[in-house]
Computed example of a mutant assay.
Amino acid sequence: MSDVAGIKKAAILLISLGTETSAEIMRQLPESYIQKISYEIANIDYVNPDEVDEIATEFLEMAQAREYVLDGGVEYARNLLNMALGAQRAKEVIDMLNQIQLRERPFDIARKADPQQLTNLLLHEQPQTVALILCYMQPDKAAMILSQFSIEKQAEIAERIGTITRTTPAVIEKIEKVIETKFSSFVDNETESVGGVHTLVEILNSVGRSTEKNIISMLEEKQPELADEVKANLFTFEDIVGLERGDVQKVLREVDNDQLALALKGVSEDIKQFIFQNLSSRAVETLQEELQFMGPARLSAVEEAQQKVVAVIRRLDEVGEIYLRRGEQDAVIS
């Protein structure tokens, strides 16, 4: 969504809310935005009711998504939005929210830097500084940079990322100024909850299996609890649709029917159909019947059931029974 499109949407939303409410909202905005929105309002002669409904719905979904993210993080928001909106719409809302948040984050200059040049400079920085910067970067780019460090440094940086909870604006600003000074000679220009397990997981989901295994192995030695939490989150239940048919069937043979029914509670129809397609007609009939008569279930119970299915997937992957696709292509051994 471009700035112009965003400003126009804001203008249409304010028009639909009425004079009194709009005036109250406008008073809370920066002067520069008040001028831009006022210009758009002045140049709008007619608003299509369907367009108003669409923009109002988008605003409510984005507001809801922001609230979920603040409550429990991106994965928590994604799970709740999947249940409320369906997988496709939930992905669109999360993607839009991520784009907006990226424009608000610090370290813009590092986000636009050439990955190799950025790596060359970060190789000489302290692990805690590298970790902080990677927290604000695109996961695939952060993964590319992380894989260039030595195995020991990778683990140390990963540990820092996984244990960061909060960082003061003053620290961020100080580091950002230093980085901008170093990068200003070759970067054109153009990544706040910082760090934590989910940030580390996003990065590890984009690196190759060897890099991931090295980092996990080192974390298991230094911080076993962090390693366990990272491993539990590396593959989400929704990712099961990316498995090969034969692999899915191997997983489902090791999952208790009651556990599978609870895990499917509230997921999108696409995921349910994918599971049904990999079961016998009798098993599908039994599973559908159990889902029908299950009744309401606590979100925590559903998530626990889904995590047990994920644990089976991870175990089968580790022993080579199934294959999980990763960020890097496997090397070919002749």
Rank of each mutant, 00 (worst) to 15 (best):
F107N: 11
V69C: 08
L80N: 11
Y136I: 00
D95Q: 15
V130L: 06
S147N: 06
V74L: 14
P106V: 07
E67M: 14
A143S: 15
Y76D: 08
L102Y: 11
I94V: 15
Q138H: 13
K141M: 14
A113T: 15
R66V: 08
I100N: 05
Q148I: 01
M144T: 14
Y136G: 11
D108T: 12
R89M: 09
R103M: 06
Q101S: 13
F107Y: 10
V69Y: 01
E104C: 03
L146S: 07
I151N: 06
T129M: 06
M96F: 04
L81T: 05
R66G: 05
Q128V: 11
A90Q: 06
L80C: 04
I100C: 04
Q116W: 11
L97W: 08
Q126K: 11
G73H: 07
C135I: 00
K141S: 10
L118A: 09
A90P: 09
R111E: 12
D71W: 02
S150F: 03
M144C: 04
N98G: 05
Y76E: 11
L97A: 05
L121E: 15
E104A: 14
A87T: 14
A87W: 01
L132R: 00
I145P: 07
L118P: 09
P139K: 05
A113S: 15
P115F: 08
R78I: 00
L118I: 05
C135T: 03
Y136R: 02
E67P: 04
A110Y: 00
V69N: 01
A142K: 00
E67I: 07
V130A: 06
D95Y: 01
S150M: 10
L123H: 14
A143Q: 05
C135H: 01
N82K: 07
A90K: 10
Y136M: 06
E92R: 13
A77N: 03
S147Y: 02
L122V: 05
L146P: 13
L122N: 10
L97I: 14
P106N: 14
F149E: 06
Q88P: 00
L123Y: 10
E92T: 10
N98W: 03
F107L: 05
K141H: 13
I145V: 15
G72Q: 14
P139G: 09
L70P: 02
N82C: 12
Y68V: 12
N79G: 14
S150A: 11
